[in-house]
Nucleic acid binder design. Structure first.
Lengths: 217, 217
DNA sequence: CTCACACTTCAACAATTGTTGAATAACGAC
DNA sequence: GTCGTTATTCAACAATTGTTGAAGTGTGAG
């Protein structure tokens, strides 16, 4: 049984939109790659925007639950939880999906990178799907960093989000910049480094009082 | 004497490309906003890509010199220089231009954000204009963080670049997320926080031996 | 079989896209 | 003025864009 054509459209659209953005891909390019007729887009998704919205939301729900569960697991062990563990719970899920699981997740995160960096309507689209989850994580971080300024916290998340976004954009710039030492698609390398990098940033800005026990790991 | 039409095209193109990306803006939209004929694009820049390239490079040269000078000033005072000062030299110039100077710089940085996050050709475009400068800064950081792993250093720059990119993309997501506490276009707020955040990240990943004197500022 | 329904194809639409050649205008040098 | 160069306009091009109505195919139930 061949894959249903609706799904073929979604796959190709995800792949192409992730690479060249909403305006950089035409419906015919998608449907040609998928081997289906253009009119199917209207039938299944209404129009181009409907197709894009469907791509955005179809994976968001499962992803949100998974990351929320990861946070729960951390908070169950200790609350307030160390900054590192909260940051890791947020990032771990994403990078694991890219590294080991169904590679189509990689396209999805590429899509999110496009959306998150879109000055026109990206902010609203991201907020619509992910703000509640982000608030859960920021609440946990607030408890981990008592007395911290709320604005500091949000800006830290902003920097964090930017680092993740550029990672998933996968522009291969670091490949040339590093002379082949690093590879833009080496998400394992990112995984190892992003958590300590971001956690240190949070502590530097949001940790008001020095604590004695700084045991991490 | 009214502004030359060539310049009007550049201004509007910069503004629109920054907001909606290369494929999201048509030449006629640019030339209509600028009040000139479409054919002028061919005359002055060859084609659409030529216009975009001109936008990218016309400000890059001056910007590179300015940032290189900022690094020189730091290194003249002390070499190796503290991480904070090197990071600040890189970021300071950008954010100052946005805050105080000619507001058209803001469009230019929005343009850079679009390019830097573009998976298709963004990496090459950024490298072409900015890699030598980035290498200068990374060299200074390498001296500030003796014995550090080179790959770590490049990945730190990657996170840094991502944080800056999302900032200049100006998506207004943080406005809603923070309930109005932060504003995406408040570059002064970013300025205060980005340097300590990124510096702490560099230290966390790249600082091999604890040092006694951690005097900053 | 027949009917209803979901799915798919086909052919075409009006609008917009980047690009272009030829004609026109502005302007300084001589 | 006259000429050469630069700048600008005009009208149009072929191609592609998203979208659409109508026709066609398949399938499963009755």
């Amino acid at each position: 049984m061949p894959k249903p054509k609706k799904e073929r459209i979604l796959e190709e659209a995800e792949r192409l939109f992730a690479k060249r953005g909403y305006d950089g891909v035409s419906l015919r390019e998608i449907t040609n790659e998928a081997g289906v007729d253009v009119a199917l887009v209207k039938y299944h998704f209404g129009n181009k925007q409907g197709l894009f919205d469907e791509l955005l939301s179809r994976r968001a729900k499962a992803l949100n639950r998974e990351r929320s569960d990861a946070l729960d697991a951390v908070l169950e062990r200790h609350d307030p939880a160390p900054v590192e563990e909260v940051v890791d719970a947020f990032t771990h899920t994403l990078l694991n999906k890219v590294v080991s699981e169904d590679p189509s997740w990689r396209s999805y995160f590429g899509l999110l990178a496009q959306v998150n960096n879109n000055p026109d309507w990206g902010g609203r689209a991201m907020s619509k799907h992910f703000d509640p989850l982000v608030h859960r994580f920021l609440d946990a971080l607030k408890r981990a960093l008592p007395g911290c300024d709320e604005a500091d916290l949000y800006w830290c998340y902003h920097f964090w989000s930017g680092a993740l976004t550029l990672t998933f954009a996968d522009t291969r710039r670091i490949d040339g910049l590093s002379g082949g030492l690093c590879h833009s698609s080496d998400f394992e390398a990112v995984h190892k480094r992003l958590v300590p990098f971001i956690s240190a940033g949070f502590r530097a800005l949001c940790q008001k009082y020095e604590e004695n026990d700084r045991e991490h790991h």
